[in-house]
Amino acid sequence: MKESPGVVDLLGVLAYAELSAYARMTEDATTLAPSLGDRAGLSELAVTEYAHFRLLRDRLAELGADPEKAMSPFVAALDGWHAQTRPADWLQALVKTYVGDGIAHDFYREASRNLDPSIAGLVDEVLVDEGRSEFAVERVRAGIEADPTAGARLALWARRLVGEALSQAQQVALARPELAVLVAESVGEGEADISRLFAKLTEGHGKRMAAMGI
């Protein structure tokens, strides 16, 4: 069964995003976690990301697409995003996991909402929270309580993450016109439609910031 190029692109970018998240969380758990408990907790989240990658990889194969070819157009953009937003410490890593990934997930979820239910359902499944919010929020709040000056620094970091995430989304859309068309079909092509999308993304971002006490 063949699927439209836009759908293959969406699943491809998600597959590489999940694979990258697994690698990044594993590295952060090893190099930045301040305790063995924190290392174990983030490693557990990383394992979940890899399981999501496998679901996407397998669905791409079922659709008649080569998973590696489907992911390859997005390697440069996503690797660039991670290189430009490498966390300097544990709290920055948690904010990136929660805020940076969160706004990207909201965007992908919106892009899939008018697709075939089996595809939209898969996207929802791989973007499910799986304890990510609770893990990050508890530790960031504790970090700010221990050092109140960390709040302002993390707020600046979160704003940078959002700016880089939106820039990354533009690069991906420019590189893959079929994906851009799919997004336009899902959210609308008019200025008002795009404004509503960004308002929704901004609202979700604001809720995450508030949850962390930033």
Rank of each mutant, 00 (worst) to 15 (best):
E44L: 14
L19H: 04
V7E: 01
P87K: 03
M1E: 10
E44I: 05
D129W: 01
L154V: 05
D147C: 08
V8S: 06
E138W: 14
R57H: 14
V7S: 03
D106H: 04
Q84C: 02
G206H: 11
E44S: 07
M71W: 08
S112H: 04
R86D: 03
G37H: 15
L174W: 01
A199N: 05
T31E: 12
A146F: 07
T97G: 06
V95A: 11
T31F: 12
P34K: 09
G12D: 07
L154A: 05
L115Y: 00
F135P: 08
L156R: 12
T48R: 04
E18A: 10
G188T: 02
E125T: 13
D101P: 03
P67H: 12
V181M: 00
M25C: 03
A111W: 00
E185Q: 05
V137Q: 08
K96I: 06
L19Q: 13
F198S: 00
G204P: 07
L154K: 11
E68K: 08
A76Q: 14
L94G: 00
F74A: 01
G163W: 04
S133V: 09
E138G: 15
T30D: 04
G41H: 11
L78Y: 03
E134D: 14
R139L: 13
L174P: 08
A76I: 05
I144L: 14
